[in-house]
Nucleic acid binder design. Structure first.
Length: 164
DNA sequence: GCCAACGTTGGC
DNA sequence: GCCAACGTTGGC
């Protein structure tokens, strides 16, 4: 069988808007998604996210709790240098520069939803019942999203998105 | 502010 | 390698 181009994948990142909001991303255009210090999320950042992948942007610990927009991966996983910067709160002296523990990607602003797509609405949508974001278990700051969940969320938000 | 869920740590 | 203790996260 011929090799097939790998399909675009979809993700969700959560961020406290007090720290970094969709408006900050809209202003910056591109940002490095640094400071993730969880091994499972690290693996996703390092191994799984590819340029062009779609990213839902979720505001956590905020009012409203909501998916507020869309980004795309603009640079695949590379070492998170904030781990070696004692001046940042993400400093991790255990991370060895010759074998980095922590990784980040760059994400690029694509769109802000006209209205935040609130957690309540997501919880009310049966087709999203399996979404990682909505499981009590999940605290992951970077999570996978299925293609079905992706299109359902965009439909609910009334958003048309071109990831380029 | 509470507390359930979960990841990490460290003694054994 | 187990697991109890502890700290953190994040929705409520």
């Amino acid at each position: 069988m011929a090799a097939r181009k790998s399909a675009r994948r979809f993700w969700l990142v959560r961020s406290e808007p007090d720290v970094y909001s969709i408006d900050d991303l809209a202003r910056d255009g591109v940002t490095c998604w640094d400071g993730v210090r969880n091994y499972q999320a690290r693996n996703t950042l390092r191994d799984d996210m590819s340029v062009g992948d779609g990213v839902l942007f979720y505001h956590s610990n905020a009012k409203p709790l909501a998916i507020v927009g869309v980004a795309r991966v603009s640079r695949a996983g590379y070492p998170d240098h904030t781990a070696w910067d004692p001046k940042t709160k993400y400093h991790d002296p255990k991370s060895d520069p010759s074998s980095p523990t922590w990784y980040m990607v760059d994400i690029e602003f694509v769109a802000r939803f006209d209205e935040p797509l609130c957690r309540d609405q997501l919880l009310d949508e049966p087709e999203l019942a399996g979404m990682a974001l909505l499981q009590k278990a999940s605290r992951l700051s970077v999570q996978p999203v299925t293609p079905d969940e992706w299109s359902r969320v965009l439909k609910m938000a009334g958003a048309r998105v071109k990831l380029g």
